[in-house]
Amino acid sequence: MTAKMIRWAAAAIGLGIALSTSFAAAEETATEFPLLKPTRQEWSFAGFFGQYDQAQLQRGYHIYKEVCSSCHSMKLVKFRNLADEGGPGFTEEQVKALAAEFTIMDGPNDEGEMFERPRLPSDPFPSPYPNDKAASFSNGGAIPPDLSLIAKARAVHRGFPQFVFDMFWPYQEQGPDYIASLLTGYQDPPPEGVEVPEGTYYNPHFMNGISLRMPPPIDDDLLEYTDGTPQTKEQYAKDVAAFLMWAAEPHLDARKALGLKVMLYLIVFAGILYFAKRQVWRGVPH
């Protein structure tokens, strides 16, 4: 009798917990940021066989250099990386030329003086500001974040139960999805009745509030593409997001290629072991 009661009580608690977890996501309040979830895009580097699209990375570098780099640093990426396998695939000569477009402070020389010289492939991408204080001063108190890892450092919380499904069907492109949505998500003027703080720009895709200090950086036909790719805001955003993903995860191509080999090996090995185990236990009831 007691047993039955406890069992019912337990079942009820179990059901309650199951229900509460499955509805948790639906109960989100309106103040959750971002106001709009990132739009999921098609990426060449998504999925099990995903690899970067060299042409896209090259276009992305172009946008980064012409637009982003005027405010954002990218300290962890070196020019030589542009020629690395699994990257944008510039040639060594091209990389030398790209690096030499910027200078770097070097020294001291034999007279003890610091001097400027053109960057070499082994030098990092240039930083637009000498330090955080200068960056903050020039941008109304906001420091433009370093972009080296931005594609891995930004992910909008997926919530329950999506994150459980993500475990079985990987979704590791949250960063680029967010970046592409943010870059194209500005709304001017903001919706009626929305008060936007002075010096900020309304963007419902921004994850820390309703608006941010970065002005809309790209627009249609801002830059020329020589390979016939459409010169739209959406395309620019996608290309630069792909480039930033590569910057954050430069060995993705190698990782997925190796993963395939390792997984195939392990599955075949497990199959052999399964039959070996069956043979060992044959005739031994257990």
Partner: peptide, 19 residues
């Protein structure tokens, strides 16, 4: 284990740790 390492190495981590 390989499923995580090769296909979603950052699933169990937190994005803020890349800052």
């Amino acid at each position: 284990y390989g499923w995580f390492v090769f296909y979603q190495p950052n699933f169990l981590g937190h994005p803020d740790n890349y800052i």
